[in-house]
Design a binder for these strands. Sequence first.
DNA 1: CAAATTTTTGACCGATTGGACAAACGTTAG
DNA 2: CTAACGTTTGTCCAATCGGTCAAAAATTTG
Lengths: 209, 209
Amino acid sequence: MEAEAPRRTRIQNEKREIILEAALEVFSNHGFRGATIDQIADAAGMSKPNLLYYFRRKEDIHLTVLQRLLDTWLAPLRELDDIGDPITEIRGYIRRKLEMARDFPRESRLFANEMLQGAPRMTPILEGELKRLVDEKAEVIKGWIRAGKIAKVDPFHLIFSIWATTQHYADFDVQVRAVLGPDRGGEGRFEDAARFLEQLYIDGLSPKR
Amino acid sequence: MEAEAPRRTRIQNEKREIILEAALEVFSNHGFRGATIDQIADAAGMSKPNLLYYFRRKEDIHLTVLQRLLDTWLAPLRELDDIGDPITEIRGYIRRKLEMARDFPRESRLFANEMLQGAPRMTPILEGELKRLVDEKAEVIKGWIRAGKIAKVDPFHLIFSIWATTQHYADFDVQVRAVLGPDRGGEGRFEDAARFLEQLYIDGLSPKR
DNA sequence: CAAATTTTTGACCGATTGGACAAACGTTAG
DNA sequence: CTAACGTTTGTCCAATCGGTCAAAAATTTG
């Protein structure tokens, strides 16, 4: 449980914000163990003892970054709505998720890193908040299936596959770049991915009949 | 380039094998920076100086593990064959990839970890060997599209999505477990995923007409 | 402006870690 | 059997890292 009221000064709020931003940058590039307090302090433009005045332990910073991240991260799924055309809803969800991978790749990589290590600091959240949300949305999808609006598929695996395919572009960015070669101009990569995923999720690979 | 012939003794071959197996275990669980030579030595049942007699630097172990991994890792794609029914071929590829995620999760996680960090030790391989293989197989897929055997999709993004969806079950295992709850019995999880992916890639989500 | 409080820093500490080394121990071939 | 070579280990070291602390500097409050 959290202690009562933290009651922070103006400077504390500002500096904590700067530190969390710097920490996101460093943690997402090097992982928890690979990141050093010095690196974060450096990225935040302050000395190590000064940083430790705002967060007393390295783990406190990590945990705070992780907590912040989750809300942003689950927002697209929260928006998945019962009302409205199912295919449109799912297409919208895929696009929002893909936009997140494009706009918040550091968050994606940090999250992936935590999962890879076995989620040592996130398991309770996964089994609690996350599971509840997914269960809820799985029900929505099941409703669509019962109504014959989409094909009969396992809703959980559907959600997993949407997570996997979209986050891949953030987490495996180096690989994608290496294979596709230099990005020739603007929104190309992103739009290609969006178009492909849309087609895959809606019609699959079977040739038109 | 590698020096000429390493010329190793029987004991060297055996011990190096033991070390690489131990290193795979440790590296895949903690990442490069998170793993210590002591842990690997411990897992290999030998002292740290003894281990350093076989691999002079921590990085040498990591690099060797990574190199070994790649062949195993790309084998399923190598098998993707021009002859034979395209849909069957793709279905087979998905299944082989999913089996790899099930049977070699440590390899998957180690690879993912390396990608997340920006592939500091693998970029040449990605841009060389990997890119060549993917380009080659993309041509095969393009042939299928021209022949009207599968829908017109971007072959590169198709390959990415197959990688993403299958490896997800190894890399995000904790999350999958947390959401699905305790695994009730045997091959359940794996077969569910296989069935879902097969359906997704072939027919998508559109309801049957 | 002055006292009280908050913020910042330099110096320091103990623990961990990657790696070196020489000496001891085994193995093998002549 | 023994000399040569391969293997193993205890000990040690320098660097790095997370974190402490007291004192200086800046800010807020009355």
